[in-house]
Amino acid sequence: MTAALGNVASLAARAGGSVVRQVRSALDPSSARPAGAAQPASGWLVVTVFREPSEIDTAKPPLAEFGEQIEIRVRPAADGKGTEVAARRRDRQSSGTAASRLSGSDPQADLRSALRRAKQLIEVGEVLAVDPAPHGERTPTPGGTLLEMWTRVAPKAGVR
């Protein structure tokens, strides 16, 4: 698995992201579609939290930080898989194109990231911190710089 992911990462770095877009358009037909980003018509972003609905408090940060900007929906998931927590911006801004999302300009990004952090807080009690990368000293390269950019936006990027 590591080798595969490493290859994808180094390829991406070498080809300046175009490979990522190609891989994505091969995998996800939606990104090749003209009509907007890979998001549902309703605009909801959803995560499933492996807890009972009674254990979900959406009035706490990080979701509470959005105040009246967002609406929140909570409902039990099928088959004991937990609780579906959905959020959407009241102004219903879209995520933009795949390319703009990859470069970090995604109006949904903060909300997506907040949902993911909320899930972690409820399920494991903390948000996983990552060591700064690269670890140690190394000569800057264009590929390395690109990869760093990419990993910086990754926590907020995605298709949710």
């Binding site: 939606s30 579609r33 998001q39 549902p40 309703s42 959803v46 995560v47 499933t48 998931a77 298709v159």
Partner: peptide, 30 residues
């Protein structure tokens, strides 16, 4: 957008079972 709608319908998880009943001459808008 089908994957996005399915994600929304399933709380971000995706369907547990996906059955393809189209075959080798599938149509797609992309």
């Amino acid at each position: 957008n089908v994957p996005a709608e399915l994600r929304e319908m399933t709380g971000g998880r995706g369907p547990d079972v996906c059955i393809e009943a189209v075959g080798m001459e599938a149509h797609h808008p992309g």
